[in-house]
Design a protein around this nucleic acid. Sequence first.
DNA 1: ACAAAAGACATTGTCGACAATTTATTGAGT
DNA 2: ACTCAATAAATTGTCGACAATGTCTTTTGT
Lengths: 228, 228
Amino acid sequence: MPHPAVIALESCSTIADRVFDQLRQAIVAGEIPPGSKISEPVLATRYGISRGPLREAMRRLEATNLVERKPNVGARVITLSNAQLLEIYVIREALEGMAARLAAERMSDADIGALQALLERHRHEVARDDWQTYFQQEGDLDFHFRIVQGSGNRRLVDILCNDLYHLARMYRCQFGMKSDRAREALKEHGQVVEAIAERDGELAEWLMRRHIRASRQSIERRLAAEKD
Amino acid sequence: MPHPAVIALESCSTIADRVFDQLRQAIVAGEIPPGSKISEPVLATRYGISRGPLREAMRRLEATNLVERKPNVGARVITLSNAQLLEIYVIREALEGMAARLAAERMSDADIGALQALLERHRHEVARDDWQTYFQQEGDLDFHFRIVQGSGNRRLVDILCNDLYHLARMYRCQFGMKSDRAREALKEHGQVVEAIAERDGELAEWLMRRHIRASRQSIERRLAAEKD
DNA sequence: ACAAAAGACATTGTCGACAATTTATTGAGT
DNA sequence: ACTCAATAAATTGTCGACAATGTCTTTTGT
């Protein structure tokens, strides 16, 4: 069963759309490592297509900030610096805070119930100590994904799911990022869900922002520790 | 002198890049009206280019959400519904609130001085009653633009300037949007700048959010009044 | 031996043509 | 006259080839 957080693949009717999805997934998964040059001929032959559709896919990747491109020179997969990762968390704090507020106001009771069920499942997973941190992180993204969708703001969903989440996953695939914050994060998730269930938008936003800020600060500490 | 809020045109070294800028400008300005179908042959001949670069530009426009595209059917300029416009203001509230907070923390004294000077200029302009509301709105965007840049968050600048601001301008070109809120907006701008000058990030965020929320509510009222 | 220029090579950018799909038109049948 | 099917036209999707630009190698001069 595919993970819920995995955004549904687009209609594969055209080659350009399909290869865009494939390339994005390959980049996010680290199969095409960051900073590596993207050669149109080799990629075209690898995917068995012409350069036309490939270039269209590249333009979309360029627009989504997954590749950097210099005219007449070529394109490279972006290398997400530590500073850029922190930048993303700042934006997530703002956007997902707002999403939590809207979700508290507009989410259906059924969806809130599903969210609570998901949280319960995560609690059981975390209780098992052998559980891979990777899947813990996926569960984290899944949680955030649902709340963002609960906001009912189409463009908000779009920005987070089509840009920021992919970048976050890319960074995670790049470095292990084993989180020792799983239990605290889970507790914070519970607080957010509770606020949403009580339809307290202001509190939900405040809690979500604090949660993401704590994640960011955890990463900052880890990065500072690595610096030695 | 080109307006400061006009984002610098990209390097025009390649046809695809140049036509992307031209198309985006034409769409935002309403020269290519919303909802109109974009025919590749006619556009290619109009710009005197081949369909290859045109399609690459279209893919970028698709990724920036300025055109909607159905495979094997074609692309249309998006029609920004009232609900979507309000969605954008909600996102702006979240993002620009955060931008104001960061600007208060990180903006240089010189940039703050320039911001205050800009505000003073706007005060004089508003004092003249004959001043076109269009340029008032441009001044408004200019103000917001500078604060977003002052945040020092590259991706935040990117999201707002490459996506949301274009959409806001597009909507404004679509409908007149004569604002009777110029004086109030100016006063709110002054409050934000004051908070930034005092390096009070929390207050700056709060004031900026209230400012954008007030703008959104003003639009909501106008839309509700039009509904009759 | 080193630097700069000239050339060869590879890659990107652009174009025109063909294939596949959709849309419009025509025609037959009821 | 209307509906549905078949055909024709137009548009989108894809491909291979050529031109332009950049990069690397070789060569030449000091």
